[in-house]
Nucleic acid binder design. Structure first.
Length: 376
DNA sequence: CCCCCCCC
């Protein structure tokens, strides 16, 4: 308890030493181990209206934290808790590390807890929604600026009311290599769950969503347990994704969002707006993905064919016209069956079809399994 | 780490 003497001295006798010690012990108990004695003493002093306890430092708002902020003190709410991990140090001891995302009213930041503090994650004592007084040092981590809290830092539950803000990115601003992406968006398409063999011999699961906001749309890849989420949502639901990262896909060079074991996705009540943008048929050039809206102006037959790998598929061709032109659409797989339901002049939207130079060097659209077709 | 861009 000697460590709290200097704090008691600063109180100038507003309380007896015994009462102060008792209050500190109560505070430690209240915090159920989430607070060390010294920090508890500072909180008690603060409760008594004495804030000049020598360790007071201005509370830093998260939006103002930069890689050069050094030691910072903040009060923030836990938004995401990642599992604690153990690792072996060179000296033979076992280190522990855990990450959180915390937020205040100005933004969010990654918090890295070490050793004893990481153990609080492992023991389940840190929950989403709790608010903490935090003191740590800032450094540039592999996915951006983060606050590190080791054994010399402060990590202490606080009853301060924090209006936490997770800043959502807009889809148009997502670029290759970006990390810690938070986004709210509308679900436009949901894939089946596929399984695959991992390099290490295990089995993995993968599923995709297409999501959109006011600024665009992007494909999202969900891995392993997160694929179950595709069973819990429907098209036009809105979702919030926390901590995704963006990577360029290596087969068509599109930037996609990945949600791995560090990310979360959940349904939200707020409805995110999305408006499909349709390209005039005359503006279509080969090698891109397009959405068009028009009327059916030609109908072909369903045809079965064998692919090189021996599998059987089917295709039908239709033509669609708008005010600017007319284009052939190849409907692949199940889409081929649609010709039986269409008439000339039926209004149709072909969404996310791939353009290429086809038969007779004319540009055509391929409606494959990532294409949606609306008939109205 | 996973996958459509295939037909005549």
């Amino acid at each position: 308890m000697d460590e709290i003497n200097d704090i008691y001295e600063k109180l100038g006798g507003v309380i007896s030493k015994d009462d102060f010690t008792r209050k500190v012990e109560e505070k430690v108990e209240q915090m159920s181990g989430l607070c060390d004695t010294r920090t508890a003493a500072m909180l008690v002093a603060h409760d008594l209206g004495v804030s000049d306890t020598g360790a007071e430092q201005q509370i830093q708002k998260i939006s103002g934290i930069t890689p050069n902020s050094g030691n910072v003190k903040l009060i923030a709410k836990v938004m995401t808790v990642y599992p604690a991990k153990e690792f072996n140090r060179n000296d033979g001891t076992v280190g522990r590390v855990a990450n959180l995302i915390v937020a205040d009213e100005t933004g969010s930041i990654r918090l890295t807890l070490w050793d004893d503090r990481a153990d609080l994650v492992k023991s389940g004592e840190i929950e989403i929604g709790q608010t903490f007084q935090i003191a740590g040092y800032v450094k540039e981590g592999y996915s951006g600026v983060e606050v590190n809290v080791g054994n010399n830092g402060v990590f202490c539950e606080s009853d301060e009311k924090i209006e936490a803000r997770i800043e959502s990115r807009q889809i148009k601003d997502i670029t290759n290599g970006m990390g810690d992406i938070n986004i709210r968006a509308r679900v436009l398409d949901i894939s089946d769950i596929r399984t695959f063999n991992k390099r290490d011999g295990g089995t993995g699961k993968v599923a995709n969503l297409l999501i959109g906001d006011e600024t665009g749309k992007i494909r999202v890849t969900l891995w392993d347990e997160l694929t179950d989420f595709t069973q819990q949502i429907e098209i036009d639901d809105s979702v919030e994704i926390i901590n995704a990262y963006a990577r360029e896909n290596n087969f068509n060079q599109q930037v996609e969002m990945q949600v791995g074991n560090r990310g979360t996705i959940k349904k939200i009540e707020e409805e995110v707006e999305f408006k499909e943008s349709f390209t005039p048929i005359s503006d279509i050039i080969p090698g891109e993905s397009y959405s068009i809206s028009g009327q059916v102006s030609g109908l072909g037959e369903i045809r079965e064919f064998n692919r090189d790998d021996g599998t059987v598929n089917m295709v039908s061709n239709i033509y669609v016209s708008d005010d600017t032109g007319r284009i052939r659409i190849a409907l692949w797989g199940d889409h081929a069956l649609l010709v039986d339901e269409l008439d000339i002049d039926t209004n149709i939207e072909i969404i996310d079809a791939y353009s290429k130079s086809g038969f007779n060097d004319e540009i055509e659209l391929s409606a494959g399994n990532r294409t949606r077709i609306n008939v109205r």
